[in-house]
């Protein structure tokens, strides 16, 4: 039971992170290493507003998501956009950005582990295991958000433009889609998703300035397993990895230390056997 719940929660968190990461990679070929750092920043903002300032937790979450999105857009405008055509430079710049976030958080909040209260207290017992209502709430919210994202991408005009640009930005241009504006909007959505992930996970997680590294590795493994740029792939792969992680943690002694290595092994195996991932597209040569 613990395995199922942990698997679902971890999987959901990874799905949200990986979809955001995949989206901006697909549309603008931006590899945003700082993606999970944004998620951390959201967590800390919520902590600061709700615990230190005593604001309502839900209000804090909303403010955090908006703040992180704005931060992301600023980072895009002044850091990423000027060097966007050098993919490696973008990667290095976003690593730097993540480290900046880490150090600033360290300065403000020190390295102490911090946490936020549950939104709803209480639990029920299934098969001898405690299931916290908070865990159910987190899972439910994630599903709703995934549904909203699916709707946005598949059923709206903006979604059509995002998917077109992801597939062929030159042709998208010919349809009248402003690809640099779309890249910016997509980055906003992507970072907002990272912020939302932070918000839904923060009551269950422990905050530390280094909390962005572990999900980063897992998220990368998810994206590789699912196929770069494939939203459906990210979704499926996130739960596969979420459950794998839960299995490793609960069934192997000291398995918690093996989470990273297992994820990395999966990533390497996929790259060796099926580089395009489960649902990926083998990229066609661009003109």
């Amino acid at each position: 039971m613990n395995i199922i719940i942990t698997g679902l929660i971890t999987g959901s968190m990874l799905a949200l992170l990986a979809i955001g990461f995949s989206l901006i990679f697909g549309v603008a070929r931006i590899v945003n290493i700082a993606h999970t750092a944004f998620y951390m920043v959201a967590g800390y903002i919520i902590y600061y507003l709700s615990i230190r300032l005593g604001l309502n937790v839900i209000l804090s979450m909303l403010i955090a998501v908006v703040a992180v999105t704005l931060l992301g857009l600023l980072a895009y405008k002044f850091l990423i956009d000027p060097i966007r055509e050098h993919e490696l430079a973008v990667m290095i710049a976003t690593i730097a950005l993540a480290l900046i976030f880490q150090e600033v958080t360290l300065q403000i909040f020190t390295g102490d582990y911090l946490s936020v209260y549950f939104l709803i207290k209480g639990y029920f017992i299934i098969g001898g295991n405690k299931v916290f209502y908070q865990q159910l709430l987190t899972f439910g919210v994630v599903l709703v958000i995934l549904l909203v994202i699916w709707f946005l991408l598949m059923k709206t005009r903006l979604g059509l433009a995002i998917r077109s640009t992801a597939e062929d930005r030159e042709v998208a241009n010919l349809m009248g889609m402003n690809e640099s504006r779309l890249a910016m909007i997509t980055l906003g959505i992507s970072v907002a998703l990272a912020g939302v992930t932070g918000a839904v996970i923060v009551p269950l997680a422990v905050l530390s300035p280094y909390m962005w590294t572990e999900p980063l590795i897992l998220m990368m493994a998810v994206v590789v397993l699912g196929g770069l740029g494939s939203i459906k792939g990210s979704f499926v792969a996130a739960y596969i990895l979420g459950f794998t992680e839960a299995l490793v943690t609960f069934l192997i002694p000291a398995g918690a230390f093996l989470k990273g290595p297992v994820a990395l092994s999966i990533m390497i195996l996929v790259l060796l056997i099926r580089p395009e991932g489960l649902f990926g597209i083998a990229f066609e040569e661009e003109r």
């Binding site: 005009r157 059509l160 998917r163 597939e167 042709v171 010919l174």
Partner: peptide
Amino acid sequence: PERRRPFREMTVLENLMAGAY
């Protein structure tokens, strides 16, 4: 454009709607 370049992962109707963006 040259080489047709449809949005290969989308349906025919979605391609046409992209044209009508």
